[in-house]
Design a protein around this nucleic acid. Sequence first.
DNA 1: CGCTTAATTGATCAGGGTCAATCGTGGTGG
DNA 2: CCACCACGATTGACCCTGATCAATTAAGCG
Lengths: 214, 214
Amino acid sequence: MTKPLPAQPRYIPAPRSPGMVGTGLVVGEGQEIFAQGAVPHGFFRVLSGVVRVCRVLGDGRRQILGFYAVDDVFGLDFGSERQHYAEAVNDCTLLSFRRRAVEALAQENAAIGQQLFLYAMQDLVQTRNHVQLLGRRSAAEKLAGFLLALSLRATDRHMVTLVMTRQDIGDYLGLTIETVSRSLSQFERQGLIALSNIRDVHLLNLPALEEISA
Amino acid sequence: MTKPLPAQPRYIPAPRSPGMVGTGLVVGEGQEIFAQGAVPHGFFRVLSGVVRVCRVLGDGRRQILGFYAVDDVFGLDFGSERQHYAEAVNDCTLLSFRRRAVEALAQENAAIGQQLFLYAMQDLVQTRNHVQLLGRRSAAEKLAGFLLALSLRATDRHMVTLVMTRQDIGDYLGLTIETVSRSLSQFERQGLIALSNIRDVHLLNLPALEEISA
DNA sequence: CGCTTAATTGATCAGGGTCAATCGTGGTGG
DNA sequence: CCACCACGATTGACCCTGATCAATTAAGCG
């Protein structure tokens, strides 16, 4: 977070998106995409990389509200000011959509409104699953659930890459880095996973993980 | 939950709703409104009473995903089958909207689609706040936040009625009934709240509660 | 006025937070 | 090219909060 940031977001030629035209942009690792408290000017779709959406609490702690990967839409937050902020977990390419333009489009084209609704619903589904994870009592259950959720989006269900830090995972699951680390180590000792390096997790026993996740 | 249920939902003359026409119905306390795993046929708006939306987990535990009160919309869950179920916390009157009908309307009338989007966004805001509550470490923080959230919707910010049971609160916050009860007692001892009876909570010191909630 | 269910309170114990030290790894500069 | 440095991750020791088990109290209802 306190590291030399790659200057400003860099804009790139815009790919197409169904109905709406977005502006492509590149965001470097750790860079902020929008700030909490700012006026929401639009939303984003991830083309590559991973984004974290967070909320800072009164006492300075951070709650991560979600990780957004390829094809995910984030930044749907159309109040007077943003209730959360977004940062690039790693280098990202994004499509940005201006709120005003999209809303104007939605006035005329019913399909656009439906598309927006769909985006919100997808976010809702993800957020509900997040609630479920956070509601689980034990750290092992939370972490197993988290790994399984990642595996669902991986090309190979048995290979998961933790692009985010342990701190990120902790702030997502309501745990400390130590507990995240300990739980992972325990899974490894139990032969449920293998950590070839810090980021790459080999899920050796999916059924067992599902059992733990309950 | 295992108590004599007031037969079937009873249908009532339908009030108006902006753009869409809903069907009014009455649901008795504890009665199920829709089942987890069922095909979603529509969504609902609360006219009176409180609804809980829950998910049953593999091991039988229950996570409450949200409480829905007057004017709230719930049941937006348009996959192939419902990922959660809904029950009346107390006697409720609801407006139900058929998915098919609304979707057909949304094809032609852009305003309907936008309304749907708004409903989803409101649910999303609520669910994100829920995530924030669940992410907090201590039971006192969770409970203080819960009480404050309720107070925001109360006619008098200092008087909150817990229509749901302690078990409900626990399943919402990821705590046991005992911890919920103990935390409330502690707040009372600290002079932060007063419990005239089991349901009615007088918030004596909102700033202090906000401090705790952080 | 009992009976049933919800809520409170108490005692005990374990899981996870906290503090602290160590390890590992990638990046930088001599 | 290697040594050093900085930061992230791991591991350990200890303690505290909240889960668990159990008993008691309170409240609604027939």
